[in-house]
Amino acid sequence: MRNQRRLQLATVGLAAVLTATGCTAAGPADAGGTGGGGGGGGMSAPVPSTSTAPATLPPLSARPVPDRAPTVIPVRAFMALPEEMRFGQIRVGTQFDRAVPPLCGGEFAAGRMAAATAAVVSAYQLRDEPSEGSLWPGVVYQTIRTYNGSGSAAFMRGLRADLASCTSFTRAGVPFRVRTAALSGVGDEALTIDLIQPQTDLPGNPIGGDQINRIVVIRVGDTVTILWDAPYENSSSKPAVVADFARRAVDTIHVWRS
């Protein structure tokens, strides 16, 4: 049975809105990591878990997204986990540089055309896991960023170009491989980024195999969302779970913008 460690969700302030106008540069928490654009200073504290999206989300909206990019990103813009997957608080405000993984450099930097950025973190449990004992919670971060003009498409082009030259790196002595693939049928365009490192036990001893954690980056009109299924107790992502998160995130953005 794995040792239980509860996620310590740091919170900043208490507000219904996660960010105000504009973006500011935010440096990485790790000196070897990414230069994150669009800091999330002054973002919200825990949002009550009773604030939910529909249990069964509607199909993707066919209604067009308005041309003007929002400069405020409300809590309701972020996906809410289904009730049975919640493990403690959901949609807790966090800083942008904690919500994306450091890669080779500044791949997730916002760029000049960004209008607003906000990020949250949620702990979750798997539906097919027991509710006590051996349960381990997963941790998913979500960033939402809005762009003026063609900024969102420009960000995606720049990200793909950066990732083409970022296939491996070493951080804190650990070698990482980066695997990128296009993701069809989600938003206007999307891609998956897998971070692959040697699998270890909790003390850090190699046990063979790979640990793989997935990021999904999706553009929905002038909005970009980044989902990071982060490692927790050396766990790997479950692709089907992350795919469900991606669909929910896109549906929720459509509802917000319509």
Rank of each mutant, 00 (worst) to 15 (best):
V12Q: 11
R177T: 14
I207L: 07
F96V: 11
V178W: 03
T34W: 00
L57Y: 12
P46D: 09
F169D: 10
A45E: 07
Y147C: 07
R247K: 11
D244V: 09
R5D: 11
L227K: 08
G149A: 13
Y232W: 13
R127F: 08
A109Y: 06
G133M: 12
V178A: 13
F108G: 02
T170M: 01
F96Q: 07
P239K: 03
G22E: 03
F78S: 02
R157M: 09
G106W: 04
S61M: 08
L103G: 06
I212R: 08
V242Y: 05
T146F: 00
R6M: 12
G37E: 10
G33Q: 06
G105R: 10
E132P: 00
L57N: 13
F108S: 10
F176Y: 15
T71D: 13
A164D: 12
I207A: 08
F87I: 00
Q197Y: 11
P48I: 02
Y141D: 13
F96W: 07
A246I: 00
I144G: 01
P198F: 06
M156K: 08
R91S: 01
V224H: 04
A249G: 08
L18K: 04
C104W: 01
Q8E: 14
A20F: 11
G208T: 10
G111K: 05
Y124H: 06
V255T: 15
R98N: 15
P64E: 02
R214D: 04
A154I: 05
R248Y: 06
S258D: 14
L18A: 11
V242K: 06
A26Q: 15
T167I: 13
L60T: 04
V220S: 15
N148C: 07
N148T: 15
C104R: 00
F245R: 01
I226D: 07
Q95P: 04
R160N: 13
Q4N: 14
N205Y: 00
T223M: 00
T225M: 05
S131M: 09
L163N: 02
Y147H: 03
V241R: 03
V121L: 12
A10L: 11
P239L: 11
P102H: 03
F108Q: 09
P66Y: 08
G208H: 11
R68E: 15
V47H: 03
S49K: 12
G32C: 10
P101T: 07
T225K: 02
F96T: 15
Q8M: 09
V174N: 07
V75I: 10
E107Y: 01
R63S: 15
S51K: 13
L183Q: 10
V140H: 03
G35P: 01
P54K: 05
P70E: 05
A114N: 01
G151Q: 01
E83T: 14
L7D: 13
T94Q: 14
A26T: 12
N234M: 09
S237Q: 13
V242I: 14
G13C: 09
T24Q: 09
P175A: 02
L126D: 08
S122W: 05
G173R: 02
D162L: 08
W228G: 08
A116I: 12
A10P: 04
I253M: 03
V140L: 13
S258I: 12
S236A: 04
